[in-house]
Amino acid sequence: MITRVLVTGATGFVAGQVITELLEHGYAVRATVRDLSATGKRAHLAEAAARLGGDLEFAAADLDRETGWEAAVSGCAAVFHVASPFPAAPPDNENELITTAVEGTLRVLRAAAASGSVRRVVLTSSIAAITHGHDVHDVVRTEADWSVVEKSAAYQKSKTLAERAAWDFVAALPAAARFELVAVNPGMILGPVQSATATSTSHEPVRLLLSGGVPGSPRVGWATVDVRDLAVLHRLALETPAAAGQRYVAAGEHVWMRDFGRTLAAEFGPRGYRVPTRVLPDLLVRAIALFDKTIRLTVPTLGIEERLSSEKARRELGWTMRPVRGSLLDTAESLIQHGVVPGPRRAAAPVPARSTSA
């Protein structure tokens, strides 16, 4: 019997890969979109379903509205709640961001509890709910850690409070209505995009470096994960009985933005892309941040290394991650292919054969 599952936020970067992964493994997928008439934004998903011979349908539902969620969840055995707001710049009112994240999550969970069919919900959280607001940074963080809300910025607050609300909601349900909850906490998500519209904020460093949109790299970096590996982890979080009630960090080694630049320059420089490899002084970044809201997001993390362990996911779910270099280059190639990054600004040199080895 084919299992039908719901994936929220269908047109997003992560949700698209989760949908593809599920279709490849024989699941029937219902996916939520805000506007059913905007078929262009989900054309890549319809094409993937046709290619795979998969069962994919769409339902209208919005995190900011109560309507649509019960119908979307109806008949589904599981829910992947992937949709969540992510600001491109610090919000003027952080409460709006937090409210959407928390209330949107609760809307999905209430519908799941009322459905009578949902047995497990896999929640896409973030390491933002783990690593922020701590006074000590030189520590390897795990699923046992939680961000300190009072000392965190708006996005980190929203992810922490939304995940906390999910665990509290499930714990408070009567036994007859209770479903199993699993949280997946990814780091910075690299990997190829499926369309020009299915990009995310995590692509910005790669886009800026390739397009020459920055003169160099701030002293920032990230613990990364490939979106394709993350999609596999979501599926394993559903299929593994022992995953119920667990959190799973999905983040590998920390990589500095300067190393992004050096890798991209070595690979794409011969093709005509002028990728900056210098490191910008902190003082300059702070000065730019006074006028640029996007750069302002990086200031709190200058010089801080994200150190996390994904050992639990490896040990309990048998999950593995591919090398960062290949993920980075695949990201860049897809941004170029889909026109997110313009063509090179100077004539290209002869291109040597590409190697994706680590």
Rank of each mutant, 00 (worst) to 15 (best):
1 M>Y: 02
4 R>C: 00
5 V>A: 09
10 A>K: 05
12 G>N: 04
13 F>L: 11
16 G>K: 05
18 V>I: 15
20 T>L: 09
20 T>P: 00
26 G>S: 12
26 G>C: 12
28 A>C: 04
34 R>T: 08
38 A>W: 03
43 A>T: 13
43 A>I: 06
44 H>L: 03
45 L>S: 10
49 A>S: 13
50 A>K: 15
55 D>N: 12
55 D>I: 04
58 F>R: 08
59 A>E: 10
62 D>G: 07
65 R>V: 12
65 R>N: 04
67 T>I: 11
74 S>W: 02
74 S>R: 14
77 A>S: 15
77 A>Y: 01
83 A>C: 06
84 S>Q: 03
85 P>D: 04
86 F>E: 00
92 D>G: 15
94 E>T: 06
99 T>F: 00
99 T>W: 01
100 T>E: 11
100 T>S: 15
106 L>F: 09
108 V>K: 02
108 V>S: 02
112 A>L: 11
113 A>H: 08
121 V>D: 11
123 L>I: 09
128 A>M: 05
129 A>K: 03
130 I>N: 01
135 D>F: 07
136 V>F: 09
140 V>K: 06
146 W>S: 03
151 K>Q: 13
156 Q>L: 00
156 Q>K: 01
157 K>L: 10
160 T>I: 09
161 L>N: 03
163 E>D: 07
166 A>P: 07
166 A>R: 06
168 D>Q: 15
168 D>H: 11
171 A>V: 04
172 A>N: 10
176 A>T: 13
177 A>R: 15
177 A>S: 15
178 R>V: 08
182 V>E: 04
185 N>Y: 00
186 P>M: 03
191 G>K: 09
199 T>V: 15
204 E>T: 13
206 V>P: 05
208 L>I: 03
209 L>D: 02
212 G>Y: 08
212 G>S: 08
212 G>P: 08
214 V>R: 05
219 R>Q: 14
220 V>N: 12
221 G>P: 09
224 T>H: 11
225 V>Q: 04
229 D>E: 11
235 R>W: 10
236 L>T: 02
237 A>L: 08
237 A>M: 04
238 L>R: 10
242 A>G: 09
246 Q>H: 12
248 Y>D: 06
251 A>K: 01
256 W>N: 01
256 W>I: 02
257 M>G: 00
257 M>Q: 14
258 R>E: 14
261 G>L: 08
262 R>G: 00
263 T>I: 14
266 A>G: 10
272 G>D: 06
272 G>M: 08
275 V>S: 01
277 T>F: 10
278 R>W: 14
282 D>E: 13
283 L>H: 11
303 G>L: 08
304 I>R: 14
307 R>H: 13
307 R>F: 05
308 L>W: 00
308 L>C: 13
308 L>V: 15
313 A>Q: 05
314 R>W: 01
316 E>A: 14
317 L>K: 07
317 L>Y: 10
319 W>L: 07
324 V>I: 14
330 D>C: 03
333 E>Y: 06
334 S>R: 09
337 Q>G: 03
343 G>T: 05
344 P>Y: 02
351 V>R: 14
354 R>D: 01
358 A>F: 06
